[in-house]
Structure formats: C-alpha cells, structure tokens
Deep mutational scan, measured.
Amino acid sequence: QKEELKEKAKEAVKRGNKDKARELLKRAGISEEEAKKIIKKIE
C-alpha cells in the first residue's frame, strides 16, 4: 500500500502536481518534512 502511494506520488510530481503528491505521501504515513524531501528528489 505504502509503495503504491509512493509510486502514485512520483507520477503526480512528474505531471507537475506537487500538492497531489504531498497528499498521497501523507496518506502513506509520511511526515510533511519527509514528503518535501521526497518530492525534491523526484523533481
């Protein structure tokens, strides 16, 4: 489940939808700070 949400978040970032990505990562139980780092890494 968590990995699936991370994959979806990756796709969202690639489409330029960072808010959606952050939302998905939060749903995966990832903190706001972690989510920001992950999104930065994907960009």
Rank of each mutant, 00 (worst) to 15 (best):
L25P: 03
E11A: 09
K36R: 12
A35I: 15
R22L: 15
S31P: 08
V13A: 07
R27Y: 04
E23Y: 05
E11I: 08
A35Q: 04
E43Y: 10
I39D: 00
E23D: 08
L24G: 00
G29E: 02
K20P: 00
L5S: 03
L24F: 08
K37L: 13
R15C: 13
L5K: 02
K10I: 14
K14R: 14
I30K: 02
I38A: 02
S31R: 04
L25T: 00
E11K: 06
K6P: 02
L24Q: 00
K41F: 12
I42W: 15
L25F: 07
A12E: 12
E11Q: 10
K36S: 14
K6H: 12
L25C: 10
N17T: 03
K20G: 07
E7H: 07
L24M: 06
Q1Y: 14
S31K: 04
E11L: 10
L5Q: 03
A28D: 00
L24S: 00
Q1P: 09
D19F: 10
E4F: 14
A12C: 11
L24E: 00
E33W: 07
E4W: 15
A9K: 00
K10G: 05
L5C: 05
K8H: 06
A28S: 04
L25G: 01
A28C: 13
A35P: 00
A12S: 04
I30G: 00
I42E: 04
E32V: 07
N17K: 07
K26Q: 10
K26R: 14
G16A: 03
K37G: 08
A21E: 01
L25I: 00
L24N: 00
K10V: 12
R22Q: 08
L25M: 03
I30F: 15
A21C: 10
V13N: 02
L24H: 02
E4M: 12
E33T: 07
E4L: 13
E11R: 08
I39C: 03
K26L: 15
K36F: 11
E32L: 08
D19C: 13
I39R: 01
V13R: 03
K18Y: 15
G16I: 02
E32Y: 07
K41Q: 14
E4Q: 10
K36C: 12
K6V: 15
K40T: 11
L5G: 01
E4G: 08
E33F: 06
E32M: 07
L5A: 10
R22H: 10
K26A: 13
I39A: 01
R22A: 10
A28N: 01
E34M: 08
S31Y: 03
K36P: 02
R15Y: 08
E43S: 07
E43D: 05
R27T: 05
D19G: 08
E7D: 07
K8N: 05
A9W: 06
K6A: 09
K37H: 10
A9G: 01
A35S: 06
Q1M: 13
A21K: 01
E11S: 06
A21T: 01
K2S: 11
L25E: 01
K40W: 15
G16Q: 03
K40E: 15
K41I: 12
R22T: 08
A28G: 04
K10H: 07
I42K: 03
L5V: 05
A9V: 15
I38T: 02
K10S: 06
E32A: 09
K20F: 13
K18V: 14
L24V: 01
K14I: 11
K18C: 14
E11T: 06
R15L: 12
K20C: 13
K41A: 14
K20S: 07
E11G: 04
I42H: 05
I30Q: 02
E33G: 06
I38V: 04
A12L: 15
K20T: 08
G16V: 02
N17P: 01
E33L: 07
K40L: 14
K20D: 09
K6M: 15
E4S: 11
E4K: 11
A28I: 04
A21W: 06
K10P: 02
A9I: 14
I38H: 02
E4V: 11
R15M: 13
K36H: 13
K18R: 10
E34W: 05
E23N: 05
I30C: 14
K37M: 13
K8D: 05
K6S: 06
L5R: 03
E33Q: 08
S31H: 04
R27C: 09
I30T: 02
K18T: 12
K10W: 09
K26D: 08
N17L: 12
R15E: 12
K36W: 14
N17E: 14
E33P: 05
K41M: 14
L25S: 00
K37Y: 10
L5W: 10
K14P: 02
E7I: 09
K26G: 07
G29K: 01
K20L: 15
K2E: 11
K20E: 15
L25Y: 04
E7T: 07
A35E: 01
E11N: 06
K26E: 13
I30L: 13
E23K: 06
S31Q: 05
K36E: 15
K10R: 14
L25R: 02
R15P: 00
L24R: 02
E23S: 08
S31M: 05
I42V: 08
A35R: 02
G29M: 02
D19S: 09
I39V: 04
L5Y: 08
E32W: 08
L24K: 00
E3L: 09
R22P: 00
K6C: 14
I38W: 13
K10M: 11
Q1K: 11
I39F: 05
A21F: 05
L5E: 03
S31G: 08
K2H: 11
K8Q: 14
E32Q: 06
E7L: 11
K6L: 15
K37Q: 13
Q1F: 14
I42A: 09
E23I: 07
A28P: 00
K37D: 12
E4T: 10
Q1E: 12
E11M: 10
Q1L: 14
I38G: 00
E11P: 02
K2R: 12
K18P: 11
I39M: 06
E23L: 09
L25N: 01
I38D: 00
K37T: 09
I30S: 02
G29I: 00
E7S: 08
R27N: 06
A21Q: 01
K37I: 13
A28R: 02
A28L: 08
E43V: 08
V13M: 11
Q1D: 13
A21S: 00
A35H: 01
K2A: 12
A12H: 09
K10D: 03
L5H: 03
I38Y: 11
V13G: 02
R27E: 12
K41L: 13
N17I: 04
K14Y: 12
A12G: 01
G16N: 04
R15K: 10
A35D: 00
D19P: 06
E3S: 07
K18D: 04
K20V: 12
I39N: 00
K8G: 04
K37C: 13
K26V: 12
E11V: 07
K2F: 15
E23V: 05
I30H: 06
K8C: 14
K41V: 10
I42P: 01
N17Q: 12
A35M: 08
K2W: 15
K26M: 15
K20I: 11
A28E: 00
I39G: 00
V13K: 02
K2L: 15
V13S: 02
G29C: 05
I42S: 04
G16T: 02
K26W: 06
K37P: 00
A35V: 10
K8E: 10
I42R: 02
A9Y: 04
E3A: 09
E34P: 00
S31F: 03
K2N: 11
E7Y: 09
S31D: 09
K20W: 15
V13Q: 02
E43N: 05
E23M: 09
K40V: 09
G16Y: 04
D19W: 11
A35F: 05
E3R: 08
I42G: 03
K18E: 06
E4P: 03
V13Y: 12
D19A: 12
I39H: 00
I30W: 12
K36N: 15
G16D: 02
D19K: 12
L24D: 03
K8S: 06
A21Y: 03
V13D: 01
G29H: 01
I42N: 03
K8V: 04
G16L: 04
I38R: 01
S31C: 04
A21N: 00
E3H: 09
D19T: 10
E3D: 09
E34K: 05
E4I: 13
V13F: 09
K20Y: 14
K41C: 14
E43I: 11
K8T: 04
E34D: 09
K36A: 15
A9E: 01
D19L: 11
I30E: 03
E3T: 07
I30P: 00
R27G: 04
Q1G: 11
G16H: 04
K6E: 10
Q1T: 14
A21G: 01
K2C: 14
K37W: 10
K40R: 12
R15D: 10
K2Q: 12
K14S: 07
L25A: 03
K10N: 04
K26S: 08
E3Q: 09
K20A: 13
G29S: 02
N17S: 05
L24Y: 09
V13C: 06
I39T: 01
E33R: 09
A21L: 05
A28M: 06
K41R: 12
